[in-house]
Design a binder for these strands. Structure first.
Lengths: 168, 168
DNA sequence: GTCCAATAGTCGGATATCATAATAATCACG
DNA sequence: CGTGATTATTATGATATCCGACTATTGGAC
């Protein structure tokens, strides 16, 4: 059973919000939270499914894109964590898998022996094109939004991230 | 290191979007996806932290609230999965943990022996009040949004869920 | 120059989620 | 009625993420 293919005759989040309002009180924040959680789940499933034929998950795809965008095609693992906003151990995990698939390579940093550089390989670059096509064609499950809607959504979410202290 | 406490001098998602635009082309959807992924991560961490002193995660808290809102204080596991939009095995996991903590109880369904009813216990009800206070006071990390913003966000996300086939 | 705090990465453990498949019970149709 | 399809739950295995702790290295304070 694929969770993302369920279809209820009503919106369970709206229903929960209504019950909450009756029992406890108004709760716009709670509703927004559950909405985001569920949409994230939908998008994650949608993008991962599009990438599966290419042997990538969204997290690994993002890592590859990040490396391909860098000047030298390589970055320290710590910087990858900052940019992707993932825990160092998550980066270790992602790089382990990409390296096992031959899509990236670990290199010593020339001057700082603590640092490991991660470099995208030719195979990695070759994988990126078709994977990007797949992601673009998957439309991310955002079919319910116009471009203007998506921009508005992005602005609201960016406000949340700024308020949460993600960046200055 | 708490990932959600990182602060960069720039917005990594906006930076990635800009690079993407230069290298590949406009990509409003990609930007919206990464925004949602990150905000979900922030909210999850924020709510889980607020609930940790009460021995609950957000998923388990949601399950308890759902049961407390039900007419009889009990629901079949399958229905819990539908309402919380989680995989049946995730429900099994959540109920296992809640039951181990004495917050819910598994009961036989009176007429359908395939079905397991999950009932909130008195201990579960007692846990819910302080946990709800904690969640409400955590403000969910949504400090960047006004109530009107949150409503607008909710409407956009609900469109996505409807388009994705969550409900009719 | 030495030493100690800070930094980079990894390991082990915990949690949460999913998918596939197994088990058990119910239901529908001939 | 009986048999096959459907439904409800759980077991097993995979992935992804986090945190705390550990090792190695660096660099600044004195």
């Amino acid at each position: 059973m694929n969770v993302t293919t369920w279809r209820l005759p009503f919106d369970p989040i709206a229903k929960a919000a209504e019950t909450w309002r009756q029992r406890i009180g108004p709760n716009w924040a709670m509703s927004a939270v559950t909405n985001i959680m569920r949409v994230q789940q939908i998008l994650q499933a949608s993008v991962d499914e599009a990438l599966r034929p290419h042997g990538l998950t969204f997290a690994r795809y993002e890592a590859l894109v990040l490396l391909s965008f860098s000047q030298r095609g390589s970055l320290p693992m710590r910087m990858m964590g900052e940019r992707l906003q993932l825990h160092p151990t998550s980066i270790t995990n992602i790089v382990d898998r990409l390296e096992a698939d031959g899509l990236v390579r670990r290199l010593r940093h020339p001057s700082d022996r603590r640092t490991t550089l991660v470099e995208i390989t030719e195979a990695g670059k070759g994988r990126l094109g078709p994977a990007t096509d797949a992601v673009m064609n998957a439309d991310f499950g955002l079919v319910g939004l116009s471009e203007a809607d998506a921009d508005a959504l992005g602005a609201l979410l960016t406000n949340v991230r700024r308020a949460a202290g993600d960046f200055d």
